[in-house]
């Protein structure tokens, strides 16, 4: 039970990181980007690729299974993921956004997700990959509870990123513009702000968060081209549960989804774990469609 709780919080914090990026782009760019989860996969694999280059220089830094090379690899992955997001926006979403219904953009995001996943499969192959072959020894915290140092790191990093992002959104001009864009794009333009620039930064931040959560996912589980696809439902459940556009909401939503997934194993066969987020989502939509904390933009029509 205790172990399941700890595992749930870990999974939840990874889901939360991905869901923050999703909720930001969904709130600010005003469409559900089904390709967001593939940015997570892309980020994870770009770090794997970069690690092949940087990893030769240094070994892990105990007690973690990774060291500085993975940190550098993550930075490279962030850059490459942001680049991919901007490229996709430039080639697909922006041309569609200007002259069609926004559901066409959602449709296209599905097509893009398939393409990104297949390109990863093509480059890296379909079998599982790991950042490190180091075996990590779990530390016994108390009877019935063991944690991996990597997992503690993951949780800490998630918290740090959430606080940083909150400060960014509250204290900077760009953050303010992003929040304003979520409410009324025309009024942002009237205020003399180039919304295209704000949109680009939103992509960069969303993609950076996706890349980091991809690396953390790869660090604590394993890498497969399908990880993004499997995270899609938990991410959406977390984002909608927390209220679209609400950063803290996404974190709480992510933790709830992670915990529910992890605790569900105690009640239903593990094979159904992936369906748990769907039922949470369905329950939220029936009961509180604006999420538990309310959305930045109304959920109801």
């Amino acid at each position: 039970m205790l172990q399941a709780l700890a595992d749930g919080i870990l999974t939840g914090s990874i889901i939360a990181l991905g869901a923050i990026g999703l909720t930001l782009t969904m709130g600010i760019l005003r469409f559900a980007n089904f390709a967001h989860a593939e940015l997570i996969t892309w980020g994870a694999y770009m770090a794997l690729g970069a690690l092949a280059i940087t990893g030769t220089f240094a070994g892990p830094t105990p007690p973690f299974s990774f060291g500085l090379p993975l940190v550098f690899a993550t930075l490279i992955a962030v850059v490459l993921t942001a680049a991919l997001a901007l490229l996709i926006d430039h080639l697909v979403f922006r041309p569609l956004r200007s002259h069609t219904s926004h559901m066409t953009v959602v449709f296209a995001s599905f097509g893009v997700s398939l393409l990104v996943r297949m390109v990863i499969l093509l480059i890296f192959g379909g079998s599982a990959a790991y950042y490190s072959n180091e075996l990590q020894i779990a530390i016994r915290v108390m009877p019935g509870l063991r944690v991996m140092p990597d997992h503690v790191f993951t949780l800490g990093l998630t918290l740090a990123i959430v606080v940083a992002l909150h400060l960014f959104l509250q204290k900077t001009r760009l953050g303010l513009s992003m929040r304003a864009l979520a409410e009324n794009p025309d009024l942002v333009r009237i205020n003399g702000i180039d919304t295209r620039v704000v949109v680009r930064w939103t992509w960069v931040i969303g993609a950076a968060l996706a890349a980091v959560s991809g690396v953390l996912y790869g660090l604590t589980v394993q890498l497969r081209p399908e990880i993004g696809f499997q995270l899609l439902l938990p991410l959406f459940a977390a984002a909608i549960l927390g209220g679209v556009g609400n950063v803290f909401g996404a974190v709480i939503g992510g933790l709830i989804v992670g915990l529910a997934e992890s605790l569900s194993v105690l009640f239903v066969p593990a094979g159904y774990k992936m369906a748990v987020p769907f039922f949470i989502l369905l329950a939220v939509l029936y009961v509180r469609p604006n999420g538990i904390f309310g959305a930045l933009r109304g959920g109801a029509k």
Partner: peptide, 25 residues
């Protein structure tokens, strides 16, 4: 400068933030 008829302030932002946004250039 232009003041639209409806939705001419950001209701989700504070008064201060509305003004800061207007002054962000």
């Amino acid at each position: 400068a232009y003041v639209p008829q409806t939705a001419n302030v950001f209701t989700s932002l504070t008064i201060d933030e509305n003004l800061k946004l207007g002054a962000s250039t």
